[in-house]
Simulated assay, not measured.
Amino acid sequence: MKSKAQSIAVSGLWIHTVCVFTVLALTSFVCAGQKTPVGKYAEINGLKMYYEVSGQGDPLIVLHGAYMDIPSMGSIIPKLAETHKVYALEFQGHGRTADIDRPITYQNLADDVAALMETLDIDSADVFGYSMGSAAGLQLAIRHPEKVKKLVAASVAYDFKGWQPAFQEFVPQMTVEMFLSMPHFQEARQQSQDPDRFPEVIRKLIALEKEPMAWEEQVKSLKTPVLIISGDADVATLEHTVALFRHLGGGVMGDMGVPLPASRLAIMPATAHTAVISQPEMLHAFIEPFLLGAVPKGMFEQTDY
């Protein structure tokens, strides 16, 4: 008999950790008219990190979620590459970046991004992260603020307590064997750079889920403009997401003759965690105006006729 927690996992409430393998069947990385991205490797922090470059314009770093890779981010990457030079990377133990003898932590992931930027002579860039990648993006802005112009953080939390209660309850039940018994992970293991090491990657990612995070004071001190994107049924609670927005100066009243805060909040309706990344049109409609600094005019603002 399965425990209640295991039943919840199978039904899908633990999708934050599984992430979006099914997106691969729903989206295509290369859209019509988009040139095939150029894939390369960079030696940084003991890793041979894989990354792809596509598009032209100001640099934009794209950070994927746990158990994901560049293709599973779907068509949001080529859409962003229409107006930006996109650098999409694959984290330690993910995709074509092999694992190394080091824990997977948000701090390590952030430092890897910073090291890649230095290797590529990118002084600063905008950053778009999803799920694990968004938390790594937060740490990048905290640890290397000079490297992040603007941060788009989709499905993010700054404290373990910000996750939905169902997910918090399930985390202690996670095991390597549970993941390896699932078809998606069996396939991912075969596609891994080192199939024999894949269980160790899962173990590290389970350990990552147990991290308390507790970055409230660090978040409050951020000067980087952040666009927070969340599904209304995401893995982070709406209350936590709004609290993050307020920590960044958001949540004030407009139409009072003062500029709006630099940070922004966008909630995607009828959207669970994995459905966030499967809606590239909506994501792009939020991200592009933020990166451009475009602000809708209110009816009380002066308009030139």
Rank of each mutant, 00 (worst) to 15 (best):
P71R: 13
F245W: 08
I8C: 12
T17V: 09
I70S: 09
P78H: 15
M132T: 10
Y305I: 11
A294C: 05
L140T: 05
P59K: 10
G257D: 07
A141C: 07
M299D: 12
F185G: 08
A207Q: 13
L60G: 04
A135H: 02
S278W: 03
G55S: 15
A66S: 13
W215S: 03
H94T: 01
Y130P: 04
T83W: 08
V127P: 09
A135V: 12
V242T: 09
V258K: 14
T237E: 09
V258I: 13
H84G: 02
E209V: 00
G298Y: 06
H284A: 02
K79A: 07
P296H: 06
P261F: 00
V156R: 08
A236S: 14
M256L: 11
V252I: 13
D112V: 00
A125I: 09
S263L: 03
P259W: 05
G33W: 15
V148Y: 12
P199L: 01
V226M: 06
L244S: 13
D58C: 03
M253T: 10
H64R: 10
Q168F: 00
G33A: 10
P145A: 02
I142D: 04
R96N: 12
I206M: 04
A285M: 08
L47G: 01
V148D: 07
P71V: 11
P280F: 01
E118Q: 10
L292Q: 14
T175F: 01
D121Q: 10
I206P: 07
Q56E: 15
D159T: 00
P280S: 03
A270V: 07
Y67N: 15
I267G: 02
A294T: 10
I70N: 10
A135G: 11
L265E: 08
H284S: 07
A233Y: 12
P71M: 11
S11Q: 14
L208M: 15
L120S: 04
M182L: 13
T119C: 01
Y50R: 14
E217G: 03
A5L: 09
T105N: 10
H240S: 15
F160Q: 12
P195G: 08
I122P: 09
V156G: 05
E187Y: 11
L109Q: 12
D121P: 01
V18L: 15
D159K: 02
A294W: 07
V38D: 10
L116W: 04
A66H: 03
Y106S: 13
Q173P: 00
G133Q: 08
D112H: 01
A214R: 11
A262Y: 01
A266E: 14
Q218S: 05
M299E: 13
A275G: 11
P37E: 14
L47Y: 05
Q173D: 12
A98F: 08
D304Q: 11
G55F: 09
A188W: 12
F170H: 13
L265W: 00
E288Y: 02
Y305D: 09
